[in-house]
Design a protein around this nucleic acid. Sequence first.
DNA 1: AAGAGGCCCTGATAGC
DNA 2: TGCTATCAGGGCCTCT
Length: 288
Amino acid sequence: MPELPEVEIVKQSLNKSITGKIIKDIFIKNRNLRFKIPKNFEKNILKKKITKVDRFSKHLILKFEDSSNLMIHLGMSGTIHLISKSRKKNSITNTSFYHSPLLPKKHNHVEMKIDNFKLIYNDPRRFGYFTYFKSDEQIKNNFKKYGPEPFDPLFNKNYIFNYFKNKKKNIKNFLIDQNFVSGIGNIYASEILFLCKILPSKQVSLLSLNDCQKISYFSKLVLKKAIDKGGSSIRDFKNISGNQGSFQKNFNVYQRENKKCLKYSCKGTINKKFISNRSSFFCNLCQK
DNA sequence: AAGAGGCCCTGATAGC
DNA sequence: TGCTATCAGGGCCTCT
């Protein structure tokens, strides 16, 4: 599911609901995620008040009153569901709180009672993880290894141009490399490069300063548009109340293999190519 | 140091 | 219907 825009949508909706509320109870049904949830995890956050829900890159962060932080990474298939008790009362089907038909039944790893809400973390592929940080300082240090987000003023043409000097990898690989820029994943990388008119296989040391300017500009634009549309719902991304985003309707290239290029007056066709084992989509004519 | 490739895991879908 | 193969939005680790 989650690249930066999808995580941002989750962050925004969680912020509206659970900020200022207290974690009253925690049930861990399956500790096996990418990293095993440690035994002492529950006591670290139990009874704590959430002061803010934050985000860095694809990481969701619950900030607590005592300056500690819970970082959640959704991996490939992680989803967060939030149910309020009031909704249960109004439910016509009178379905049990825990097994609402809207909720996945398998792979619910973590459940938390937060005031009158129930928050559920579900993750079939178990590529997500939870990490607890004792202080703001600690989580800040953890993020030092990551590159700037696309929205960061640091992510400008000069940073990009300098970073690419003497590098041999292709541009697609760099866009999804979190050390270079944080938050872009496989879908948006293809979409950004289409707007830049740059082939995903293009070696970065060959890109001009003007190309780098386009990469900076369209990275911001694509992610911002995706956030405005509520994220992309391929497969099963839904926000925490079960609604789908709509940005997938705006895809120019992703999953449009063999279809016509959507650029006005371009007669090209969208091609699919595996670059480092990840699918990449591009127009064979207008991207150079 | 940079880059390529394997691997972690389950589920949906396509093809036979 | 039921098997097998392939692919999925991420990113860590190891090896060269």
